[in-house]
Amino acid sequence: MSNVIKVAMADLNVVTAPDTIRTSGLGSCVGLVLYDDLRAIAGMAHIMLPSSSLSKQEKMNEAKYADTAIPALLTRLEKVGARSNSLKAKLAGGAQMFSFSTGNDLMRIGPRNVEAIKLKLGELGIPIVSEDVGGKNGRTIEFDPASKKLHIRTVNKGSVDI
Protein backbone atom coordinates (compact mmCIF):
# COMPACT_ATOMS: atom_id res chain seq x y z
CA MET A 1 0.00 0.00 0.00
CA SER A 2 1.54 3.30 -1.02
CA ASN A 3 0.69 6.76 0.21
CA VAL A 4 0.85 10.18 -1.34
CA ILE A 5 2.79 12.66 0.79
CA LYS A 6 1.38 16.16 0.31
CA VAL A 7 3.46 19.29 0.26
CA ALA A 8 1.59 22.56 0.86
CA MET A 9 2.47 26.07 -0.32
CA ALA A 10 5.78 27.20 1.26
CA ASP A 11 6.40 23.74 2.64
CA LEU A 12 8.79 20.81 2.06
CA ASN A 13 8.93 17.11 2.79
CA VAL A 14 10.72 13.85 1.91
CA VAL A 15 9.50 10.49 0.66
CA THR A 16 10.76 6.95 0.19
CA ALA A 17 9.37 4.35 -2.23
CA PRO A 18 6.72 3.03 -2.65
CA ASP A 19 5.17 6.31 -1.48
CA THR A 20 4.96 9.29 -3.82
CA ILE A 21 5.09 13.01 -3.10
CA ARG A 22 2.83 15.68 -4.54
CA THR A 23 2.12 19.40 -4.49
CA SER A 24 -1.00 21.02 -5.94
CA GLY A 25 -1.71 24.31 -7.64
CA LEU A 26 1.74 25.65 -8.47
CA GLY A 27 1.37 29.08 -10.06
CA SER A 28 4.36 31.37 -9.91
CA CYS A 29 5.69 29.03 -7.24
CA VAL A 30 8.16 26.34 -8.25
CA GLY A 31 8.00 22.70 -7.22
CA LEU A 32 11.55 21.41 -6.81
CA VAL A 33 12.31 17.71 -6.55
CA LEU A 34 15.68 16.47 -5.35
CA TYR A 35 16.11 12.71 -5.61
CA ASP A 36 18.84 10.24 -4.89
CA ASP A 37 19.62 8.53 -8.17
CA LEU A 38 20.83 5.35 -6.46
CA ARG A 39 18.31 5.05 -3.66
CA ALA A 40 14.53 5.42 -3.91
CA ILE A 41 14.48 8.59 -1.81
CA ALA A 42 13.25 12.03 -2.83
CA GLY A 43 12.34 15.39 -1.39
CA MET A 44 10.05 18.14 -2.66
CA ALA A 45 9.81 21.86 -1.86
CA HIS A 46 7.03 24.27 -2.87
CA ILE A 47 9.05 27.47 -3.23
CA MET A 48 7.30 30.86 -3.31
CA LEU A 49 10.03 33.50 -3.40
CA PRO A 50 13.56 33.69 -4.82
CA SER A 51 15.52 34.97 -1.86
CA SER A 52 15.27 35.02 1.94
CA SER A 53 16.68 38.55 1.81
CA LEU A 54 13.12 39.53 0.83
CA SER A 55 11.90 38.29 4.18
CA LYS A 56 10.66 40.83 6.68
CA GLN A 57 9.63 38.17 9.15
CA GLU A 58 11.04 37.65 12.60
CA LYS A 59 10.61 33.91 12.39
CA MET A 60 11.46 32.78 8.89
CA ASN A 61 9.91 29.86 7.08
CA GLU A 62 12.91 28.24 5.33
CA ALA A 63 10.76 26.33 2.86
CA LYS A 64 9.42 29.53 1.31
CA TYR A 65 12.63 30.83 -0.28
CA ALA A 66 14.81 29.24 -2.96
CA ASP A 67 18.10 30.00 -1.20
CA THR A 68 17.02 28.50 2.13
CA ALA A 69 14.63 25.74 1.00
CA ILE A 70 17.32 23.87 -0.94
CA PRO A 71 19.79 23.51 2.00
CA ALA A 72 16.88 22.65 4.31
CA LEU A 73 15.71 19.97 1.89
CA LEU A 74 19.26 18.57 1.65
CA THR A 75 19.46 18.24 5.43
CA ARG A 76 16.12 16.41 5.53
CA LEU A 77 17.19 14.10 2.69
CA GLU A 78 20.48 13.21 4.37
CA LYS A 79 18.59 12.34 7.55
CA VAL A 80 16.62 9.68 5.68
CA GLY A 81 19.72 8.23 4.01
CA ALA A 82 20.21 10.14 0.76
CA ARG A 83 23.77 10.96 -0.33
CA SER A 84 24.44 14.44 -1.58
CA ASN A 85 26.79 13.22 -4.35
CA SER A 86 24.07 11.13 -6.01
CA LEU A 87 21.36 13.82 -5.91
CA LYS A 88 19.63 15.06 -9.03
CA ALA A 89 16.95 17.69 -9.56
CA LYS A 90 13.71 18.10 -11.49
CA LEU A 91 11.58 21.19 -11.38
CA ALA A 92 8.26 22.54 -12.57
CA GLY A 93 6.24 25.73 -12.13
CA GLY A 94 7.23 29.38 -12.28
CA ALA A 95 4.29 30.37 -14.48
CA GLN A 96 3.04 33.86 -15.08
CA MET A 97 -0.66 33.40 -14.44
CA PHE A 98 -1.68 36.91 -15.43
CA SER A 99 0.18 39.42 -17.51
CA PHE A 100 0.29 43.03 -16.49
CA SER A 101 2.04 45.97 -17.99
CA THR A 102 2.50 47.68 -14.62
CA GLY A 103 6.15 46.61 -14.50
CA ASN A 104 5.75 45.49 -10.92
CA ASP A 105 8.66 43.18 -10.22
CA LEU A 106 6.55 41.00 -7.96
CA MET A 107 4.46 40.04 -10.97
CA ARG A 108 7.56 38.53 -12.62
CA ILE A 109 8.15 36.33 -9.64
CA GLY A 110 7.84 33.00 -11.51
CA PRO A 111 10.92 33.43 -13.74
CA ARG A 112 12.85 34.93 -10.81
CA ASN A 113 12.07 31.86 -8.69
CA VAL A 114 13.35 29.57 -11.44
CA GLU A 115 16.56 31.59 -11.86
CA ALA A 116 17.24 31.59 -8.11
CA ILE A 117 16.74 27.83 -7.86
CA LYS A 118 19.08 27.15 -10.78
CA LEU A 119 21.70 29.40 -9.28
CA LYS A 120 21.57 27.60 -5.94
CA LEU A 121 21.62 24.14 -7.55
CA GLY A 122 24.61 25.25 -9.63
CA GLU A 123 26.48 26.33 -6.49
CA LEU A 124 25.81 22.98 -4.89
CA GLY A 125 26.70 21.03 -8.02
CA ILE A 126 23.33 19.29 -8.28
CA PRO A 127 22.48 18.56 -11.95
CA ILE A 128 19.02 19.38 -13.33
CA VAL A 129 17.73 16.37 -15.25
CA SER A 130 14.50 17.87 -16.58
CA GLU A 131 12.23 20.85 -16.12
CA ASP A 132 8.86 22.22 -17.17
CA VAL A 133 8.81 25.89 -16.25
CA GLY A 134 7.25 29.17 -17.34
CA GLY A 135 4.12 29.55 -19.43
CA LYS A 136 0.78 30.75 -18.18
CA ASN A 137 -0.66 27.61 -16.63
CA GLY A 138 -0.87 26.32 -13.12
CA ARG A 139 0.54 22.85 -12.44
CA THR A 140 0.01 19.97 -10.05
CA ILE A 141 3.01 17.69 -9.78
CA GLU A 142 3.72 14.27 -8.32
CA PHE A 143 7.06 12.50 -8.04
CA ASP A 144 7.55 8.78 -7.76
CA PRO A 145 10.95 7.97 -6.20
CA ALA A 146 10.82 4.42 -7.58
CA SER A 147 10.47 5.36 -11.26
CA LYS A 148 12.08 8.82 -10.81
CA LYS A 149 9.32 10.25 -12.97
CA LEU A 150 7.77 13.62 -12.30
CA HIS A 151 4.14 13.65 -13.37
CA ILE A 152 2.82 17.10 -14.29
CA ARG A 153 -0.85 17.95 -14.76
CA THR A 154 -2.06 21.25 -16.22
CA VAL A 155 -5.59 22.51 -16.77
CA ASN A 156 -6.70 22.12 -20.41
CA LYS A 157 -3.28 20.94 -21.52
CA GLY A 158 -3.28 17.44 -20.13
CA SER A 159 -0.44 15.62 -18.40
CA VAL A 160 3.21 14.89 -19.08
CA ASP A 161 5.93 12.89 -17.38
CA ILE A 162 9.38 14.38 -17.25
Binding site: S24, G25, M48, L49, S55, M97, M107, I109, G138, T140
Partner: peptide, 19 residues
Protein backbone atom coordinates in the same frame (compact mmCIF):
# COMPACT_ATOMS: atom_id res chain seq x y z
CA UNK B 1 -7.73 32.86 -16.35
CA UNK B 2 -9.26 29.43 -15.95
CA UNK B 3 -6.93 27.42 -13.79
CA UNK B 4 -6.29 25.72 -10.46
CA UNK B 5 -7.34 27.83 -7.51
CA UNK B 6 -4.04 27.27 -5.69
CA UNK B 7 -2.06 28.59 -8.65
CA UNK B 8 -4.32 31.63 -8.97
CA UNK B 9 -4.21 32.59 -5.30
CA UNK B 10 -0.42 32.20 -5.28
CA UNK B 11 -0.25 35.43 -7.16
CA UNK B 12 -2.18 37.56 -4.72
CA UNK B 13 -0.24 36.11 -1.80
CA UNK B 14 3.22 37.09 -3.01
CA UNK B 15 3.34 40.58 -1.45
CA UNK B 16 2.11 39.12 1.85
CA UNK B 17 4.46 36.19 1.72
CA UNK B 18 7.41 38.48 2.36
CA UNK B 19 6.14 39.34 5.82
Amino acid sequence: TVDMVGAILNYGLIPLSEV
